[in-house]
């Protein structure tokens, strides 16, 4: 049961870097929409950080194809393996889709997508207020779903570390088999 292989070092680095960025992003996002005087500087971070996460998520997806993750322990019940796989697919989908919806909704709002100074992105959708409203709502709902999914992911990681003690947690941390 402690035969579990660790993730490649680059995969682990990407995982923990993105964990920090995505958590920061979710807290900034939910905080800024409730902020009056802090709104502007939080939005100014939210936009470029979202695009950075999008770029990293694509790199991570490519890295996953080149360096596949280790298989889950064979003793793990089938339903748990299924939940693990499905939740990881959903995590990847949200990491990529959430920034894209943010970019798309600003485009539909007719707002420039300013990253920093003169650096800005082109619109990816036509100016359409109704479409903006729909995407804006979707952005919030999916962000809440991502946060819930991250909590579940965190809970599962702790279960592996403290209760199952099957090496799955360590495969993403120290890389030690136990």
């Amino acid at each position: 049961m402690s035969q579990h292989q660790p993730f490649p070092v680059f995969s682990r680095l990407l995982h923990w870097l993105m964990a920090i960025l995505i958590l920061a992003m979710l807290f900034i996002g939910i905080g800024m929409v409730a902020s009056v005087t802090d709104y502007h500087w939080l939005v100014s971070i939210h936009k470029p950080l979202g695009i950075l996460i999008l770029v990293l998520a694509v790199i991570r997806l490519i890295n996953r194809l080149i360096n596949p993750p280790p298989a889950l322990p064979a003793e793990m019940p089938a339903w748990q393996r299924w939940v693990a796989h499905a939740s990881h697919i959903l995590l990847y989908v949200l990491m990529i889709v959430l920034p894209l919806i943010g970019w798309a909704m600003l485009s539909a709002a007719g707002n420039p997508v300013v990253l920093y100074g003169a650096l800005h992105l082109p619109a990816i959708l036509p100016h359409d207020a109704m479409l903006y409203a729909l995407l804006r709502q979707t952005h919030t709902v999916l962000a809440l779903l991502l946060f819930a999914l991250i909590l579940a992911h965190f809970a599962a990681a702790l279960l592996h570390a403290l209760i199952f003690r099957d090496g799955v947690f360590q495969s993403m941390t120290t890389g030690q088999r136990r």
């Binding site: 800024m32 929409v33 902020s35 009056v36 005087t37 802090d38 709104y39 502007h40 500087w41 939005v43 709002a109 207020a129 109704m130 903006y132 409203a133 729909l134 804006r136 709502q137």
Partner: peptide
Amino acid sequence: LSARSAVYSRSFTRRAG
């Protein structure tokens, strides 16, 4: 300024839909 930005955005989101 930040307040205007935040409140206009909220108003825009409501009326846009």
